[in-house]
Design a binder for these strands. Structure first.
Length: 602
RNA sequence: GGUCCAGUAGCUCAGCUGGAUAGAGCAGCAGCCUUCUAAGCUGCGGGUCACAGGUUCGAAUCCUGUCUGGAUCACCA
C-alpha cells in the first residue's frame, strides 16, 4: 500500500528550515544538518527539529535560535499551527488539516500499489535449503518465515522478487538413510506405517547413526584408532560405496534414491503448505553439484587459483587475511563452495538479478565471505551483489538444539501444539459460539500460526533468540493473537454498522475535530509507507512487526476511550468507522508481509 | 590464537545511520465489562544500558581496551 505522502511533511520542514536559516542568518546550510524526529510523547507537538547543530550558523543560544526558526515556519507554512521550545528542541504542532488531508487522500485505497517510482530492482532470494535426511525443525521455521517475509516486504517496496529454494538431495548423508532402509526397512513405506515421509526417512538416518555407533565401538575395542573408527565401519563402507554407485548413475541406486527423496518431498510439502511458504523455483543439488568445477578450472588456467602437488586446487586468500581454501579435491571432485560458485553463476545468468540474497544461518558468515572473495578474484564483478542475510540461531534454555540429545523442536509438532493451545484458549474464553466445526478449526490454526510466526518475526533476524518450550508462546500483549484480535474487533464493528444500515460515506467534512487518540492512529497510518521502505532496506520483518504492534496499541486506546457506533454526530460516526476500516486494512497488509493471516472474527 | 556477532528491567525483546527524563510485553500488585469483542484498557513498582576510558554541546547508540556468552576458521554440507 503506497500512500500519497508525496507531500512528505519532513521534506517540507527541512526545505523550509534551510530557507529560514538563509533569511534569518544569511547562511547556506546543507539539508543533511537538519535533523527531524518524532516529538516525544511527553511534549506537545508532532515533529521536532533539533537545533543544536544549527547554532554555529545562528550564533545565538539554542532557545533563541529555536524560537526564531519556529516563528518563521509558523508564519510560512500552513501545516504548522504552533510550536514550543524546550532547550534546544523545537517542537512543531502539525495542523489537523494536514493529517485529515492525508486521511482523505488515502482512506479509500483498497490494495497494494507498489512503489512504481522505485527503480524496480530485481532480486533473487534463496531460503529454506533443507536436507532430505532430516525433518524440519524450529531453526528451519525461522529461516522459512524470515525468507518468505523479506521477499514479501521487498515486493511491497517495489522490487521484482524471485523466491528460490535449493534442496540438498545428495551426498553421503542421503546414502546413510538409503542403506538403513535397505537393511532394516524393506517394504515399509510412509503410507504403510502412516508416517509423514520426511519423518519416515529421517528415522532411518537416525537408525544408521545408531547402528554405526555400535560398529564403531566394536572397532575401537579391537584397537582401531578412535578418530578413524567411525569412518571405517562396515556400514560406512556400504554408504561410501553407494555414493560411488549414485555418482556413476547406477540404475538401482538412483531409483531407490528417487523413491526415498520423493517421500521426503511429500512430507516437506505438507510442512511448507501449513507454514504458508512457497517458491518460484526449486533447485536440486543433484542437478547443480557439478557446476562450478569448470569455473575453477578456468581460474586455474588464468593462474588466479593454484594447484598443489597432490593435484588439489586452491584459492589463496591470504591477501584478504584469510586462509587458503580448497576448491577441488586431489581426485578432482568438488566441495561445497565449488558448488556454490556454480549456483551463484547460474543464478546470475538465469535472472540477471541486481541482487542475490541468501537467507542462511549466521554460522555460515565465513563461508559467504570466502565465496564472494573467490568470485571477485575470478572476475565476477557482480559478486558484490551477493548478500548473505545471516539470521541468528534459535536457542533453547539449555543451549543449542541437538538431535543427539533429543532437544530438537520439530516443526510439525510445534505447529500442532500451537493449534491446540489456540483451541484451548479460545474455548476457555468462550469465543466460538456460532462457529461451525470447520470454521473453528480454521480459526485455531490461524491463531496458533499467528502466535508462532509473530513470536519469531518480531525479533531482529540477525540476533540469536531464545525459545522456551516449557513456557508456551503467549497470546496476550505483544503477540500475534493480540493483533489478530484487534483486527477481528474492527471487523465486528463494521459488521454491526452494516446491520444498522449505516453506510460509510467518503464524504468527510474537512472541519471535523480530530481527537488526540484519533490523530495518534492517523500518524501511525502515515508512517506505513516509510516503514515498509525501512524494513526492506534492513531486510527486517521485525520492523514491520513492531510497527503493526504500535498501530494496534494506539488503535485500542482510541477504541477504548472514544465511542464509535455510539457516536451521535453522523459525520464523526462516519469518520471513526472509516478510520477503523483504514486501520484494519493496514493491519491486514502488515500481517500479510509477515505471512500471518487475520480472522474476520475471533 | 585470528575473525565475526551479541551483552539494555526478574524473563523475552524494542531503541543503536548520536539528541530530551532509556521503552514495550510477560511475570507481580491495584483498578475498569447492564453500553461498539476484557485475547482489551488504565495505574503502580522494577535500570550503574556488562565494565573502563575516549570523541562530542550531547553517548545505550560512534571509537579503543577489558570481561562474559555464542558462532566460525574442514578434502561436512
Amino acid at each position: 500500500m503506497q500512500f500519497n505522502n508525496t507531500t512528505m511533511i519532513e521534506e517540507i520542514l527541512i526545505n523550509n528550515t534551510v530557507a529560514a536559516l538563509e533569511i534569518l542568518y544569511k547562511q547556506k546550510v546543507d539539508k543533511q544538518l537538519i535533523q527531524i524526529q518524532k516529538t516525544k510523547k511527553e511534549f506537545e507537538g508532532d515533529l521536532t527539529i533539533v537545533v543544536f547543530p544549527l547554532l554555529k550558523f545562528s550564533r545565538k543560544n539554542p532557545e533563541q535560535t529555536a524560537n526564531e526558526i519556529g516563528e518563521y515556519l509558523k508564519n510560512n507554512l500552513d501545516e504548522i499551527n504552533k510550536f514550543n521550545v524546550v532547550k534546544g528542541f523545537l517542537n512543531l504542532v502539525i495542523s489537523d488539516e494536514f493529517w485529515l488531508d492525508f486521511f482523505l487522500q488515502n482512506h479509500k485505497k483498497e490494495k497494494y500499489e507498489y512503489f512504481e517510482k522505485n527503480n524496480g530492482e530485481s532480486i533473487v532470494i534463496e531460503f529454506s535449503s533443507p536436507n532430505t535426511n532430516k525433518p524440519l525443525h524450529l531453526g528451519h521455521i525461522r529461516n522459512n518465515l524470515v525468507g518468505n517475509s523479506i521477499a514479501a516486504i521487498l515486493k511491497a517496496s517495489g522490487k521484482k522478487v524471485k523466491k528460490v529454494n535449493l534442496v540438498n538431495d545428495r551426498g553421503i548423508h542421503i546414502c546413510k538413510s538409503m542403506i538403513a532402509w535397505q537393511l532394516w526397512g524393506k517394504n515399509q513405506t510412509p503410507d504403510i506405517t502412516n508416517k509423514k515421509g520426511d519423518k519416515f526417512v529421517g528415522d532411518f538416518y537416525v537408525k544408521f547413526e545408531k547402528e554405526n555407533k555400535k560398529e564403531t565401538a566394536i572397532l575401537i575395542a579391537d584397537g582401531v584408532d578412535k578418530d578413524k573408527a567411525a569412518q571405517q565401519t562396515p556400514l560406512m563402507e556400504k554408504a561410501r560405496k553407494m555414493l560411488v554407485n549414485w555418482e556413476s548413475g547406477e540404475k538401482e541406486t538412483r531409483e531407490l534414491w528417487e523413491k526415498m527423496n520423493n517421500w521426503v518431498y511429500m512430507g516437506f510439502d505438507k510442512t511448507y503448505d501449513r507454514l504458508g511458504i512457497d517458491f518460484d523455483k526449486t533447485y536440486y543439488e543433484s542437478d547443480t553439484y557439478l557446476l562450478g568445477k569448470e569455473i575453477v578450472i578456468n581460474g586455474l588456467k588464468e593462474r588466479i587459483l593454484f594447484k598443489k602437488d597432490d593435484g588439489s586446487v586452491w584459492a589463496d586468500l591470504t591477501d584478504h587475511k584469510l586462509d587458503k581454501k580448497l576448491l577441488l579435491r586431489p581426485d578432482g571432485t568438488s566441495v561445497y563452495i565449488t558448488q556454490d560458485i556454480g549456483t551463484a553463476q547460474l543464478r546470475h545468468d538465469e535472472y540477471n538479478a541486481d541482487k542475490l540474497l541468501y537467507v542462511v544461518g549466521n554460522e555460515q558468515i565465513y563461508h559467504f565471505n570466502v565465496l564472494k572473495i573467490i568470485l571477485e578474484k575470478l572476475g565476477r564483478k557482480w559478486a558484490e551483489n551477493i548478500i548473505h542475510i545471516a539470521y541468528g540461531m534459535v536457542e533453547l534454555p539449555h543451549g543449542k538444539m541437538k538431535s543427539r540429545e533429543g532437544t530438537v523442536v520439530d516443526a510439525d509438532d510445534l505447529m500442532s501444539e500451537m493449534h491446540l493451545t489456540a483451541k484451548t484458549t479460545t474455548e476457555e474464553l468462550g469465543k466460538i459460539e456460532g462457529f461451525s466445526a470447520d470454521e473453528a478449526e480454521e480459526l485455531f490454526e490461524i491463531i496458533g500460526q499467528g502466535a508462532l510466526k509473530y513470536f519469531i518475526l518480531k525479533v531482529d533476524p540477525k540476533k540469536n533468540m531464545l525459545f522456551n518450550p516449557v513456557e508456551s508462546i503467549d497470546f496476550n500483549g505483544n503477540t500475534g493473537p493480540f493483533i489478530q484480535y484487534t483486527y477481528a474487533r474492527i471487523k465486528s464493528l463494521l459488521r454491526k454498522a452494516r446491520e444498522r444500515n449505516i453506510t460509510l460515506s467518503d464524504n468527510i467534512p474537512d472541519n471535523i475535530n480530530i481527537h488526540p487518540k484519533e490523530k495518534q492512529v492517523i500518524k501511525n497510518l502515515y508512517d506505513f509507507s516509510e516503514t515498509i521502505q525501512q524494513a526492506a532496506e534492513n531486510y527486517s520483518p521485525a520492523i514491520i512487526a513492531n510497527y503493526v504492534y504500535n498501530l494496534v496499541k494506539d488503535y485500542n486506546q482510541f477504541y477504548q476511550e472514544i465511542p464509535i457506533l455510539r457516536e451521535e454526530n453522523p459525520d464523526l460516526l462516519n469518520f471513526r468507522l472509516k478510520l477503523s476500516e483504514f486501520t484494519s486494512r493496514v493491519i491486514k497488509t502488515s500481517m500479510e508481509l509477515l505471512g500471518i493471516k487475520v480472522p474476520e472474527r475471533m
